[in-house]
């Protein structure tokens, strides 16, 4: 009887331990400094700060120093076409092209140390860690597929977006202030796309995935900028007439102001 009880207790204990093992007792708590970035006439880029901490329940057994973080910020998805120039008849013309469908218009991937030091290549791939592992769907003819990271169009796409500050990857951008408190800055360039941005934060420890969380912010045009951009798209005729009226008024005013005869 006593033996039976002991076995049952041990079995139950193992069961609980097994059940609890994958869901380790770490949680991520994050906050971004500004949830609404506004584009005003004098907007010329901005920087957001992402703060967060790793909360551990009681006796979590990973030593604090073993945490790694990967932060992925992705802007509103959009379609793009990448074209390659080739020489034809002595001049350089756009020849070949690829369409990228529903890819992030802004992408920033930050970590606290190089990805290879954080985890295995397999896990990097499955967790989409790094610009090489982000899915960039291409349309090739009638097929939709992502291609290998070394594809020239894919590489050119990432390189050009990076040159404009729209794609970036930095494996030293996340800093741990204390073993569990971290911060990183999210730089937004002047040509920032408008829309909703997702921030995905992955916590890893000793090469294994531990926890993840996400937050978001939005970039909006407000006031005059929004009014002009909306009018140009949605009330194109009215917008065009306004521009024409503006041109004619300016021209007429000039002829009155500078009249000499």
């Amino acid at each position: 009887m006593r033996l039976r009880l002991a076995i049952a207790l041990v079995a139950a204990g193992i069961g609980v331990a097994l059940a609890a093992a994958p869901a380790r007792a770490e949680r991520l708590i994050v906050s971004v400094s500004n949830h609404r970035v506004t584009i005003t006439p004098n907007y010329a880029g901005e920087e957001l700060v992402l703060f967060g901490s790793v909360e551990r329940d009681g006796d979590a057994f990973a030593p604090p120093s073993a945490y790694d973080l990967v932060v992925t910020v992705s802007g509103p998805p959009d379609d793009f076409v990448t074209r390659r120039k080739e020489r034809a008849f002595g001049i350089w013309v756009n020849a070949d092209s690829r369409q990228f469908l529903q890819v992030p218009s802004y992408l920033a991937i930050f970590a606290n140390r190089p990805f290879d030091a954080i985890t295995s290549p397999e896990l990097q791939r499955s967790l989409k860690i790094g610009l090489d592992h982000i899915v960039l769907t291409q349309r090739v003819g009638t097929d939709y597929a992502d291609v290998v990271a070394s594809d020239p169009f894919r590489r050119a796409f990432i390189r050009l977006r990076t040159e404009h500050g729209l794609y970036r990857q930095n494996t030293a951008a996340v800093t741990f202030l204390t073993p569990t408190l971290f911060r990183t800055t999210i730089p937004l360039p002047a040509e920032v796309p408008v829309g909703d941005y997702d921030i995905d934060i992955k916590l890893l420890s000793r090469g294994a995935f531990v926890a993840s969380t996400s937050t978001r912010f939005e970039v909006v045009k407000i006031g005059f900028e929004q009014f002009v951009a909306n009018a140009a798209r949605q009330r194109a005729l009215f917008y065009g007439l306004t521009i024409v009226a503006m041109a004619l008024t300016t021209g007429w005013l000039a002829s009155v102001v500078f009249r000499r005869d």
Partner: peptide, 14 residues
């Protein structure tokens, strides 16, 4: 020969 052979253009969300 241009320094950058590739160009990107936004084509609007499908």
């Amino acid at each position: 020969q241009p320094q950058e052979l590739f160009t990107i253009r936004e084509i609007g969300t499908t």
